[in-house]
């Protein structure tokens, strides 16, 4: 029996050259992973530094209250900021109810049928469709077919379709996290299905749903391509007064400034990016806050 033949092995503490090599390789590999992760984190720092260095000097009240202009020193983001607010508000009003009701159906009502499976798979795959394709859809359906033209409403409808899969997926997760015992207890006292959902499931799932919706909306705020596809304007010197007005939005304004050759417009774009990132970060902070409140209960 060859087992336990210790004569072949050095004593503890006298590691062989090959083992030393293996440890060296392991250390190198770890250093590689740590280094590359640090590099990825550093890129974020670099990006923020670049934006801040370019944009901060241009950031003042005038920048927020002026309309765009072909003179860089007079240009501002007023119309873009209001356009973005319009788009976000309308998108929230449309996608929140539709998304949540769809999630309720899929989690609480849907029979385990073929159609349900098709819907689920379809939602998962829609989430990966490039945003520009939603733009094409919006262009064909809302702008041309429904005749909404280049309006805020057409933009909001397009954005709603874009973020619906995200909202449905996160709302479903929040609803699924509600313990089954809550439902059973409510059914046991004779509540109808909708009463159970409204009185017990939805309130319990609300923080999770809202977090998901806010994160989805912050994605909508940053999206540019679909709005360009439906023909949102890059130069708008007024604030939209209603859902049928033409509009521009922050990312479109930024796109417009970046695509100009002059340095000062690049710096204006950086200032616009700061405004956009502040809006996004405050929405993310709100989402974190709601999630925190939800878990504390």
């Amino acid at each position: 029996m060859a087992a336990n033949d210790l004569t072949k092995r050095p004593a503890l503490g006298q590691r062989s050259a090959s083992l030393r090599r293996r440890h060296l390789l392991a250390a190198l590999f770890k250093a590689c992973c740590v280094g590359l992760t640090a590099a990825a984190v550093a890129v974020l720092g670099l990006l923020i530094y670049q934006v801040a260095a370019d944009g901060l000097p241009w950031l003042d009240m005038q920048f927020l209250t002026n309309f765009p202009s072909r003179f860089a020193e007079k240009a501002g983001v007023k119309s873009a900021l209001f356009g973005t607010l319009w788009i976000v508000t309308l998108t929230a009003l449309i996608s929140l109810p539709v998304g949540v009701l769809a999630a309720i159906y899929l989690e609480d009502y849907a029979p385990p049928s073929r159609l349900t499976r098709v819907i689920e798979i379809n939602i998962a795959n829609l989430a990966g469709v490039p945003s520009i394709v939603y733009g094409i859809l919006g262009l064909a359906i809302f702008v041309r077919f429904m005749g909404l033209e280049r309006s805020v409403l057409a933009g909001a409808l397009t954005m709603s379709l874009l973020i619906l899969p995200v909202i449905i997926i996160s709302a479903k997760e929040a609803i699924r996290a509600v313990p089954a015992s809550i439902r059973l207890a409510a059914f046991a006292v004779g509540a109808t299905h909708w009463q159970v959902v409204r009185a017990h499931v939805l309130p319990a799932a609300l923080p999770g749903i809202l977090t998901g919706v806010i994160l989805a909306l912050s994605r909508a705020i940053g999206e540019t391509a679909p709005l360009i596809m439906i023909g949102a304007l890059t130069y708008v010197a007024f604030v939209p007064a209603g859902p049928m007005d033409e509009f521009t939005a922050l990312p479109i304004q930024i796109f417009n400034w970046v695509s100009r050759p002059q340095q000062e417009f690049h710096e204006l774009a950086a200032a616009g990016i700061i405004v956009l990132l502040v809006v996004l970060l405050s929405m993310n902070a709100l989402a974190v806050l709601i999630r925190y409140q939800g878990t504390r209960k």
């Binding site: 210790l6 092995r9 503890l12 503490g13 590691r15 083992l19 293996r22 440890h23």
Partner: peptide
């Protein structure tokens, strides 16, 4: 002592 050596034994 290398933990790898320990686990070999």
């Amino acid at each position: 002592v290398d933990p790898v050596e320990v686990r070999l034994r």
